[in-house]
Write a protein that binds this DNA or RNA. Structure first.
Lengths: 106, 106
DNA sequence: TATAAGTGCAACTATTCGGTTTCGAAATTT
DNA sequence: AAATTTCGAAACCGAATAGTTGCACTTATA
């Protein structure tokens, strides 16, 4: 069973769940109320998100509150870092060209 | 056919392809040489990457060079932005606590 | 204590996905 | 012109996935 964060966020429903619980913890029922699907389907998504540690559970009596493990999101940011360098370089090169054009106009 | 960038980078082989062609354009054969799979399988991945515009094609005779559309990567960065704000806030709050502890020590 | 509410888990189904094999088209080389 | 190279597309297969339904467990409430 392959469970990594990239696979977890590939599903649009899971991205919506992540956005929903980013700021406040929610129970599966409360989350499911925001979607046109069953609670069990949401439960499955929550399981996947929990398995890759993107989401954590807090037991309160018979309710389970799910909340985002924001630290895990940094992994995506870390992966993106290598590409950020590339697009920033391209931007700088474009910048140089624009400066050269400006100079020529003077 | 659902083709978005998040689904595109969900597959580890596709992430590897992206990393491979990030700095230099490559042909399908050249790319496939880096993996333990057939050229056709790589070709399928390239098709998915092309369909979601993460990769572009340049025809040179009978060869097709694939290269990364670095601009598209910014979409992930943009999506990540809302969460970056959250983890930076958490960090700042931690910072405040640390400063408070330091003051008490004095 | 009996009932209701909140939840996870297993079984099942339809669909999607990653991969291989086979084929044909287009460009290059001999 | 014939053979070779580079490549995409279609057909097919096994595995994974998202969803539904049904059920059992735990906790709260009447």
């Amino acid at each position: 069973m392959r469970r990594d964060i990239f696979q977890a966020i590939a599903d649009p429903t899971r991205r919506a769940i992540v956005a929903l619980i980013a700021l406040q913890a929610m129970t599966p029922n409360a989350i499911a109320n925001n979607f046109h699907t069953t609670r069990q389907a949401i439960s499955k998504h929550l399981r996947i998100l929990t398995e890759c540690e993107l989401v954590k559970q807090d037991y309160k009596g018979r309710e389970i509150y799910y909340s985002l493990e924001i630290q895990k999101m940094k992994e995506i940011d870390k992966w993106l870092e290598q590409y950020r360098k590339i697009w920033e370089n391209r931007f700088n090169e474009l910048d140089k060209i624009l400066i050269t054009i400006k100079r020529k106009k003077k």
